[in-house]
Design a protein around this nucleic acid. Structure first.
Lengths: 152, 152
DNA sequence: CATTCAAAAGTCAGGAATGGTCAAGGTCAA
DNA sequence: TTGACCTTGACCATTCCTGACTTTTGAATG
């Protein structure tokens, strides 16, 4: 198992155990405990605990420093899907698109089946005949179109 | 025996041995073991493990990368969705695609939400940047990919 | 106070370990 | 002979991991 997975799993565990949905850690300490260099913690956080995946991260340097990771709930009141549609630009990478869909599913804003369908439509697997240069544009277009279709 | 056959056979074997219908492999490793260049693995996968043939494929690059092949077609008794996947050719018009989805929904083979999502993904509305000449190919590819994702 | 120091966390570039794409050429059966 | 299928290799893209260097912060010191 990769270091990255171990670290991510550890943080997820912390989030689950915390009653306030907040995990606070000390970077050097955690790196020591998990046997990696400190900057690897940053790598994991920036690659797996992104806003698209539903997390926000705060930190402080210096004495008494920390890294705090919070799972954020999408606002259910004002059509969170619309919010995403508006936030997505003209391009989107496969990884980012996937993160958005998985987050929506985790928050139960879309069904498992809808997630499956969308994931398959956003994967490069379906774009064999499409030139590389326009795949990310197509993906963004499809994502927005599909999400819009789900807004009542 | 052709290399392609050897590779395909090997993967099929892996799928049979797997209890979850899923085979995960490392491209370079397999290429080494079977004595071919790595890209030949891609050729085999794109030519023989397609949605039409009842497979869906995911992969990840980079450290700890993999190729995962999942069999969605049931051994005996083909899923009704699989019939459609096989019946659709390399091209499909917007009207025909729409009719297929509406029919599946009417027969309660897919949910209303899944139908909505698929309809939006199959409409030309989402293909603004795609040259006219390849839209129907893209549509067919997406249709098959999405339907396959819904099986099992 | 202002300065200095130590203890955090952040950034970045590079290397290694993967898989992906494409175009050119080879093989073979019809 | 020709067209479909196969094979190869050069080049590209992504993900992970590390370490050197930078920045920020609070506390000790003068």
């Amino acid at each position: 198992m990769r270091l990255t997975d171990i670290i991510a799993e550890y943080i997820l565990q912390m989030l689950e155990l915390a009653d306030d949905g907040e995990a606070e850690l000390r970077r050097n300490e955690l790196a020591e405990e998990l046997g990696c260099v400190p900057s690897q913690i940053n790598y994991v956080i920036t690659s797996r605990f992104t806003p698209e995946q539903g997390y926000i991260v705060e930190s402080k340097r210096g004495g008494g420093g920390y890294i705090r990771i919070r799972r954020v709930k999408l606002e259910r009141g004002v059509s969170p899907l619309m919010h995403i549609v508006n936030a997505v630009g003209d391009d989107i990478s496969p990884v980012t698109a996937q993160a958005i869909i998985e987050n929506l599913e985790a928050q139960k804003l879309i069904s498992e089946n809808a997630a499956k369908v969308m994931l398959s439509a956003l994967s490069d697997q379906a774009y064999r005949d499409i030139p590389m240069e326009i795949r990310d544009r197509l993906r963004a277009s499809l994502l927005k179109q599909m999400l819009a279709a789900l807004i009542t």
